[in-house]
């Protein structure tokens, strides 16, 4: 899994805890993600999957423990935190495209304002990325004019435009109409093939089987089981994982 020969993990989460009031959403979580690895986080709702995903770029603060990204602990705030986030792409369940900007502007805003890349160059690169996710013809439209699947592919292009070291996907297909799920998954599978480091919170078993190196099963704020996709889906070790799989696989 360390194809480029760099043995230090890209992300190291160590003994992380977080509470939302009385709710203990992350219980002593430890997890490492290697460079080029695709980790799928799976589990019942309210199990802390999204919180863990959002903690990795500090959209969610943690109460204790450490998260180390690319050899350095996550900065707490300010310019250093902004710089870290520019290296970690994020794709949200509800797309969150900038509603007042066109599709192309959504993709170029970060490169121009954060990286200081000249607009012309950013637009050229932006068009290439929109081409790659299959929506170059929509570049001049506004997000509300696009389908959910197109919006989510734009969001992936927006993340890619920053040349991130990894991309976090927080339930990227959960808000989509069923017929649009596959077009987004196809883009994600392409990214995985190209060696992008990805942490993906999802219920899409097909994606996990085809693209994941590892499946992490979370329930009630804990990592209950970690395994290869094949092992996990055919031969889960824990009762909680078996119970969860029986519920989603029968449908």
């Amino acid at each position: 899994m360390t194809e480029n020969g760099d043995a230090t993990p890209l992300v190291r989460v160590e003994n992380v805890n977080k509470n939302f009031g009385a709710l203990h959403v992350l219980r002593d979580i430890s997890l490492t993600v290697s460079r080029g690895e695709v980790v799928v986080v799976i589990g019942p709702s309210g199990g802390g999957k999204s919180t863990l995903c959002r903690a990795i770029n500090r959209l969610e603060t943690i109460d204790s423990g450490t998260i180390i990204f690319d050899g350095k602990p996550l900065p707490a705030e300010g310019k250093a935190l902004a710089r870290l986030r520019s290296d970690v792409g994020m794709v949200f369940q509800s797309f969150n495209l900038f509603a007042h900007k066109t599709i192309l502007e959504n993709v170029t805003l970060g490169p121009v304002k954060v990286r200081g890349i000249p607009r012309e160059q950013a637009e050229k690169r932006g068009m290439e990325l929109l081409e790659r996710v299959g929506i170059a013809t929509q570049a001049g439209k506004y997000p509300a004019q696009l389908s959910g699947g197109q919006q989510q592919r734009t969001a992936i292009a927006r993340a890619l435009a920053m040349d991130p070291k990894m991309i976090l996907f927080d339930e990227p297909t959960s808000a989509l109409d069923p017929e649009m799920v596959q077009e987004v998954l196809d883009v994600m599978i392409g990214l995985a093939r190209d060696g992008m480091t990805m942490v993906v919170v999802t219920h899409e078993m097909g994606f996990a089987r085809r693209a994941a190196n590892r499946v992490v099963f979370m329930s009630e704020g804990q990592i209950v089981e970690e395994n290869t996709p094949d092992e996990f889906f055919t031969n889960a070790r824990t009762e909680r994982a078996k119970d969860f799989l029986s519920k989603i696989l029968t449908h």
């Binding site: 902004a82 986030r85 792409g89 969150n96 805003l109």
Partner: peptide
């Protein structure tokens, strides 16, 4: 989510 997406790209 608009502000979160903005922060997530490093603004």
């Amino acid at each position: 989510g608009q502000a979160e997406a903005a922060r997530a790209i490093g603004l």
